[in-house]
Design a protein around this nucleic acid. Structure first.
Lengths: 256, 256
DNA sequence: GCAACTTATGGTTAATATAACCATAAGTAC
DNA sequence: GTACTTATGGTTATATTAACCATAAGTTGC
């Protein structure tokens, strides 16, 4: 796997074991950040993931999670943010660390590299408002919102990372009010229910019971504005009341 | 901070910006794993963390979380396991990833290093049975179980990592049966209650109600053996029934 | 305009779970 | 034996949950 010919030989990293000084059998890493960005299209009622098309090796021609390699002096969060803002313009953003994948052989570049540099990926989990978000088309690379059900085979181990992201989305939805980070500024109670139903499965709760539980929490403000989307009785538009939520911050809340 | 004199100069990493090729402004990393290992002493009813004394720079003379740097060809989990089994001999082990700390300036070695190598730490969360565990005394380094309340100022950002570990311990205890990974093979219902009370706070639940809830789950097997520790009526010893728990695995369980 | 349909809203009710107790059993300490 | 200590097994009022149902207020088709 190693081809030490055309590159300087006095680098740290892998060498034949007999010549290994004790300190240099430590692995050398490049660190990448990859972000699972979720959003929801309330019009069409679809859960979306942001993917970017790769045009460079390895995995050229594959879709992948937006990511980048960490630069000198840059924090992990800053790198995640940079990779994100290169691709979308976003107002509201929820971002938290997901998982770190760092095993050997997770990146084909490791095998091709003469010095056995390893690639570790710190993955992040992000939620954005579909309506507040604009994709940055740079003409070169494809960027697209994919419905979660239609995501293809991705580059690297990104399908695995996405699976972790989905798990996290579910538990976050059950135990915290992140729903209001993905939903538009004002929304109907049905919108909230539809989001929960699509993520948690159809049979998670009766709509009527969900409504009463949600309203009893006292964290939604009724704007009194009525909306009428297609058929049916017009619904009230609600707004998330962050101040009313403050005292509930540490208490366990379950929407199931 | 950089002292490039006595080391080879053709390494990747930081160089003056003007001479930076675009690809080499990527940061170079060493990756460490640090593990927060919890245990509980049911005799004295104390929650314990395993700490090791450092005898090398940096932070020589400070207590720290057991950890090591990842070697060539080694997975993160394998490194965590190696660091652990060097210090304790353990039968039962619960291990999961905690958080990744990777910002610049988190390790003093970064500033002293001529090539600006950064140190990233993937932290792990572990639970072991105090009774099944033997500390490996190698004569050189100190290893000790510290009661959580008496943990001193640790090396690096390990106090911060420990804080993350405590949070994780609390949520794990509330939502999963990890308690039975720290408790001895057989235990009384009081033992379980004491563990929950010390981790979650005194006022988390009435003992009697806790008992009934716990028994109703049907995941504990009564060994019928009675124990008598000091005064009071002898208590039944119970055993965790892993098979009975299987069907409940994905269901939310709350002990609050 | 009117019947049929669709979605929103605001209930009811039985079953279940929770919180705050209390009574008694079965050992040890003196 | 009496006092104390811990374990065990209740009871009861209250709150929560799940499964419905009735009506309101719009749109659609004719």
């Amino acid at each position: 796997m190693t081809k030490p010919a055309d590159k300087p030989a006095n680098k740290p990293g892998y060498r034949p074991l007999e010549s290994l000084p004790t300190t240099t059998d430590l692995a050398d890493f490049k660190v990448g950040v990859d972000t699972v960005i979720f959003s929801v299209d309330t019009e069409q009622n679809r859960l979306l993931v942001l993917l970017v098309m790769r045009h460079e090796k390895p995995y050229s021609g594959y879709w992948s999670l937006p990511g980048t390699l960490v630069r000198v002096g840059e924090s992990l969060e800053a790198a995640a943010d940079r990779a994100l803002t290169e691709k979308i313009r976003v107002n509201n953003l929820y971002l938290e660390q997901l998982f770190t994948f760092g095993g050997p052989d997770r990146d084909p570049r490791e095998a091709e590299d003469a010095y056995n540099i390893r690639y570790l990926s710190v993955s992040y989990f992000a939620l954005v408002r579909y309506e507040d978000t604009a994709l940055i088309a740079d003409g070169v690379r494809g960027i697209a919102w994919y419905p979660l059900s239609q995501v293809p085979k991705l580059a690297f181990d990104h399908n695995q990372i996405l699976t972790y992201g989905c798990k996290r989305l579910r538990s976050k939805l059950e135990y915290s009010p992140v729903a209001f980070d993905v939903l538009p500024e004002t929304f109907t109670l049905s919108d909230v229910y539809q989001l929960y139903a699509t993520v948690l499965g159809e049979d998670f709760s009766d709509y009527s019971n969900f409504r009463t539980r949600l309203l009893k929490l006292g964290i939604l403000e009724d704007t009194k504005v009525k909306t009428s989307r297609g058929a049916g009785r017009p619904a009230s538009l609600y707004r998330f009341d962050a101040e009313a939520f403050q005292p509930l911050k540490d208490k366990p809340m379950v929407f199931l």
